[in-house]
Design a protein around this nucleic acid. Structure first.
Lengths: 140, 140
DNA sequence: ACAAACATGATCTACTTAGTCAAGTATGGT
DNA sequence: ACCATACTTGACTAAGTAGATCATGTTTGT
């Protein structure tokens, strides 16, 4: 359900958010090293993030990336959707039966439930969680 | 998130559940015709359903399938899991960072939310929904 | 000029899903 | 006994996606 792209994108954004007070840009290399993200893969993941206006890139020597929005403005759902993953969640034909429609509603409900969770988690929340340790924050 | 296999499996089980009072088995052909399921594909979908003990097969002429459990005993989550879909939901390496752990918790939460929806929908509920029409049952 | 670092587009491989096929086995009707 | 019907099993193919890599170009600081 969650692709590696989305996961890596989130890790990169966390990293940028955590270093947002420092004005010097963060090199791709620093992120891939710290989070074990396969080298040039992150580059193509950062593209949609830049297209979404969430990060800025600085070219040339000492270049890198910088967060360009407030971390409380982005949710995990936003990130997941920006990465343009394929959803094969519609199974309705042109002439769906009652069963198929009822079933599709069920899938939609389930999907909506997980989207609700992700849309409730902002980038700022996640950064806070990382700083406070994870022991007491999950109640599942 | 929901594969065609799971969708088809549910449709087949709906059909069997709706005709459970009739004791004559339902031929695969009848199900594929009614629900536009590609021919021999349903056959291999019925296999895990039989393995789970939810359907019985009758061989030979006038054979077919019959539901062998109470429809209130099976949930959509049960069906989805019985179809053995791949989950690529764990993104943790051997030495995960705090960020990766916090993020994985978020994915798990989202996943759990949708599982909760599916585990709340029993086969009997779905059959009822099909019979009553779908207008008033969803509140999203 | 040179090196560091981002930009872009093409490409490759492995895996999963969806769907098909063929040969075999069991059962009921004639 | 024979035959049509219908399930059983396992192998197989096709297409699409995710994950990852590479080569080449461009920008900027020293």
């Amino acid at each position: 359900m969650i692709s590696a792209r989305v996961h890596y994108a989130c890790l990169a954004l966390f990293e940028l958010a955590m270093r947002a007070d420092d004005t010097t840009p963060v090199a791709v290399r620093e992120i891939t090293d710290k989070h074990n993200i396969p080298g040039p893969f992150l580059v193509q993941i950062l593209r949609p993030l830049r297209a979404a206006g969430w990060v800025q890139s600085v070219r040339g020597s000492h270049g890198g990336y910088r967060l360009s929005v407030d971390p409380s403005q982005i949710t995990l759902l936003d990130i997941a959707e920006a990465m343009g993953c394929q959803d094969r969640n519609s199974h309705l034909s042109e002439t769906p039966t009652k069963s198929a429609i009822a079933l599709q509603h069920a899938w939609d409900e389930a999907n909506e439930a997980s989207r609700a969770v992700l849309s409730g988690l902002r980038l700022s929340d996640m950064v806070e969680r990382c700083h406070h340790g994870e022991a007491t924050m999950f109640y599942i």
